Simulated scan of single mutants.
Amino acid sequence: MDVEELHRRSVEAFVALVGQVPADRWGDPTPCTDWTVRELVNHLVYEQLWTPPMFAGATIAEVGDRFEGDLLGDDPAAATRAAAAGAIAAVAEPGALTRTVHLSFGDTPAEEYARQLSADHLIHSWDLAKGAGLSGRLDPELVDEVAAWFVDREHAYRASGVIGLRPIPVSDHPQDRLLNAFGRASRYWED
């Protein structure tokens, strides 16, 4: 799967889940202990809004704080769809994946950044599903793509504190192995 497709499909899967969140679940906790369902969705919308300027060559300082605060308003699903459309378009723009993006930890190939965004959307899709009481089954093709990419990055992510400790595995299912690598304890068959 090429990186553009990986990004698009992972973002679209997240957007689809946001559209299914029951009205009474937005304040519920998620496996990301610092975030409720609404805060988790806001975090991903924040990332989606950052994507176009980052792919256009902006620096962190140039983007500044324009995307701080509540980005969801009264219609979180609509806000998520709109932000996602901009992010998908930015990554799909001809030549976008050959650029360099200027992240807080240094200049990074845009293709690597798109993979990071894809992984974040995929893993947080599971977090969202668990918090909102939805099915936590992830697209197996996306799981395989992110898992293959993450093998060489897991140690660095954990060392930097971006992900938690790897829990004791509860199954050998590919989705569970990926979620465990990202510090989540899960069982594929549990919805």
Rank of each mutant, 00 (worst) to 15 (best):
M1T: 15
L6R: 03
R9G: 13
S10H: 06
S10Q: 07
V11N: 09
C32M: 06
C32L: 09
T36K: 08
Y46D: 11
W50C: 04
F55A: 05
A58Y: 13
A61P: 12
E62M: 11
G64E: 10
R66L: 07
L72I: 10
D75N: 15
A87Y: 00
A87N: 00
A89W: 06
V91W: 00
E93L: 11
P94V: 09
L97F: 03
T108M: 15
P109N: 11
R115V: 01
A119D: 07
D120L: 02
H121E: 11
H124S: 08
S125N: 06
S125H: 03
D127L: 03
L128F: 05
L128I: 08
A129Q: 02
A129Y: 02
K130T: 13
G131H: 02
G133V: 04
L134A: 01
R137H: 13
L138S: 00
P140N: 07
L142Y: 03
L142T: 02
V146Y: 02
A148R: 12
V151P: 06
V151N: 10
V151I: 11
Y157S: 10
S160K: 13
G161I: 06
G161A: 06
G164I: 01
G164L: 03
R166H: 12
P169K: 06
P169T: 08
D172C: 15
H173K: 03
H173E: 09
P174T: 04
Q175I: 03
N180L: 10
S186P: 04
S186G: 05
W189D: 12
